[in-house]
């Protein structure tokens, strides 16, 4: 039981207006690691993750998610069970907030999945703690928050249902540096917890710092799937963030910098150490 796609096609619209979003896509996403899903806009990334949450059914082929198997004709009465196991954070997720207080909004998911009120509250509090929002936030209106804070609340809403698989659609887009750092830290928390995470992103810094596996889509097809270190060598020099340019340069001199980005002081320490050795 894992996540696998087998010859999946997906089309939006009908006849003349039909648009082929996934074109004979077959791949397996490993369990227990963080996978980055990259590719240009319109390459089918968002469609793929919506298939995994049961929001769409494939036009043909099979999508396997945990113990659910989706085909064009598959009928599930209770998709809510799958949605509890697969948490999906949408792009611009701050637009999904609607309750009058933050704690209520985070509790919304657990309550939908029939948890008792006190249990739901506990789950919401835990989730808010993970995203770094303390008690002082609980009763505030989500609409008074900044963009980054709203994103945190939305993320807590997904984490509150304690999903086995967490899917994030461009979590760092339009976030400030602090917010981006928060997302990277969260991803490493998930990694320590052994969660299966799928991140759709254009942010190579995030991929290099926090992901294990990389899948690239192109025009709805699989361009490549590889481990992160391989991906690192596949990228062109100009595509790399500065830190990784330096890392590549130093690797040639047999000095290994970690994937997790270091501060300039830490880099100096590493280089001094290497010099002594």
């Amino acid at each position: 039981m894992g996540i696998a796609l087998d010859h999946v096609f997906f089309t939006y619209g009908k006849r003349k207006q039909a648009f082929l979003a996934l074109d004979d896509l077959s791949l397996t996403i490993p369990i227990g690691v963080t996978t980055a899903l990259i590719g240009a806009t319109g390459s089918g990334k968002t469609t793929l993750i919506q298939l995994l949450n049961g929001l769409f059914k494939p036009s043909s082929g099979t999508v396997e998610v945990l113990d659910y198997i989706f085909t064009k004709k598959a009928k599930y009465k209770k998709l809510s069970l799958l949605r509890r196991k697969v948490g999906l954070l949408f792009q611009f997720s701050e637009n999904q907030l609607f309750e009058d207080s933050i704690i209520k909004d985070v509790m919304f998911g657990p309550l939908n999945f029939k948890y008792k009120k006190d249990v739901a509250r506990k789950m919401a509090e835990d989730a808010l703690k993970i995203v770094g929002l303390d008690e002082s936030y609980y009763d505030r209106s989500p609409f008074t928050l900044s963009g980054g804070e709203k994103r945190r609340v939305a993320l807590a809403g997904v984490l509150a249902i304690e999903p086995e698989i967490i899917i994030l659609d461009e979590p760092t887009s339009s976030l400030d540096l602090e917010g981006q750092k928060m997302i990277r830290e969260l991803l490493s928390t998930f990694k320590n917890l052994g969660k299966t995470v799928i991140v759709v992103t254009h942010d190579y810094k995030l991929v290099l710092a926090s992901c294990d596996e990389v899948i690239k889509l192109q025009h709805g097809k699989l361009a490549f799937q590889c481990r992160k270190d391989k991906f690192f060598t596949l990228l062109d020099e100009q595509e790399l963030p500065d830190y990784y340019k330096l890392k590549r340069l130093l690797t040639k001199k047999e000095i290994n910098l970690p994937y997790q980005e270091l501060s300039s002081n830490e880099i100096i320490t590493v280089m001094r150490k290497a010099k002594h050795e």
């Binding site: 949450n53 929001l55 809510s80 949605r83 949408f90 637009n95 999904q96 919304f108 939908n112 249902i161």
Partner: peptide, 13 residues
């Protein structure tokens, strides 16, 4: 459509 999907994935039917 977008909001409906987001809420559906949070368990709304």
């Amino acid at each position: 459509t977008r909001i409906m999907k987001a809420q559906t994935s949070r368990g709304v039917d």
